[in-house]
Computed example of a mutant assay.
Amino acid sequence: MTARPQSTNPLTTAPSTTPSTTPSVPARGPATAAGPPARFRDLLAAEWLKLWSLRSLRWAFGVSALALVLLNANAAVADRNNWPHYDERIRAGFVPYGAFADSFTNNSGITLMLIAGSLGAITVVGEYSTGLVRAGFAAVPARRSLTAAKAAVLTVVMLGYGAVVAAASFGVTQAILSGRHIGISIGYPGVLPAVLASALLAPVSALIGLGLGALIRHAATTIVANVVVLLLVPNFLRDDHYWSAVLYHAMPFRAWQRLREFGPPGLGPELPFPSTAGGSWLVLALWPLIAVLLAVVVVDRRDL
C-alpha cells in the first residue's frame, strides 16, 4: 500500500512556531533606556572614591607635603643660624616680613603650584588615556554634572592639602625662629590672610590643571602647559610698564606673592604700578572659576 501524502493545505497545517513560544521584547521607554538621573551627591561620592582609590596619589600627597614643609623649614634654619651675622638693616625688616617669608618661600610656592597643577591635570587626563572616561559617561550621560562633581571633589581635597601644608610650614618655621626670638604668631596683623593665600594656592593651581587637562587631553602637553601658564609667563612680565604690570598682577603666582608681602611701610621697593590686595584675591578666585567653566564646556561639547 502506498502511504497517503499529508495535506499541505495552509489552513490545516500547524505552524512550526506559535505566538506563545516567540520571546517578547519589552518596549523601551525613556526610563528603561536611560534610567533615573544620577543625584549630584552620588556623583560626588563616586569621584571621591575614584580619587582615593589610587595608592600612588595618596603617596604623592604625603611625600610632597612633607617635602614642602622641610623646604620651608630649611629656610628658617638658615636664617636662625645666620642671624648673628645679619646687619641692622636686615634685622630691622626681618619681623614680620622675613619671618613669614620663611614660612612659605618662593621656591615652595613654585613647587606647590607644579605639584597641585599636575595632580589636577591627572584627574582628567588619566581617564582619557585609560579610556575610563567612556565608561563614566556611559554610566552618567550628564557630562557637565560629572565634571562639576570632579571639580568639587578636587577643590575640597586640594584645599585640605594646601591648608595642612601652609599651617604645618608656618608652625614649624616659627618654632625654629623663636629660638632667636624672631618668630611671629598667627595673630600678628596680616599673617592669617597670608597663610590662607598660601593654602589657596593648591586648589587654584589644581583647578587650572584640570581645565588645561580637559582642553588638551594629553599628559605631557598638559604638564608643559601648566608650567608655561603658572610659572614661565610671569617671568616675562614686569611691574615697570602699565600693560605688563596689568598682566603680571593677573597671574596667580604674582597674586599669591602680593598677598604674602606685608610688613613696615617702605620695606620693599616703590613700584610705579603696584597691585592691591583686593585685586589679588579676585585673581585667585577668577582663575579656578574660569578653568572649571572651561572644563565643563569642553567636556560637554567635544567628542571622546
Rank of each mutant, 00 (worst) to 15 (best):
M1P: 13
R4M: 14
A14R: 11
A14C: 06
A14L: 10
P15C: 07
T17Q: 14
P19L: 15
T21Q: 15
A27C: 04
R28G: 13
A33R: 15
P36R: 15
P36H: 13
D42L: 10
L49P: 04
L54S: 15
F61T: 04
V63Q: 04
L66N: 04
L66D: 04
L70H: 10
N74K: 07
V77Q: 05
A78K: 13
A78S: 12
D79K: 13
R80P: 06
N81L: 14
N81I: 10
N82V: 08
H85S: 15
H85R: 12
Y86E: 03
D87R: 02
R91W: 11
G93P: 04
F94P: 08
F104Y: 13
T105C: 06
T111D: 05
L112G: 14
I115A: 09
A121G: 06
I122W: 01
V125R: 06
G126P: 04
E127W: 01
S129N: 12
G131W: 04
L132R: 12
F137G: 05
S145T: 12
A149S: 05
A152T: 15
A152W: 08
V157G: 06
M158A: 07
L159K: 06
G160L: 14
G160E: 09
V164Y: 04
A167H: 01
V172C: 09
S178C: 09
G179L: 10
R180V: 09
G187K: 06
G190F: 11
P193H: 08
A194I: 00
L201G: 08
L201D: 06
L207G: 00
L215H: 07
H218Y: 02
A220G: 13
T221C: 05
V224K: 01
L231C: 03
L232E: 07
L237I: 02
R238P: 01
R238F: 09
R238C: 01
D240R: 10
W243L: 10
W243I: 02
L247P: 03
Y248I: 02
H249V: 00
Q257P: 00
P264G: 02
P265R: 03
G268C: 03
G268A: 10
E270I: 12
S275Q: 06
G279F: 07
I290M: 06
L293I: 08
V296N: 00
V299A: 05
L304A: 11
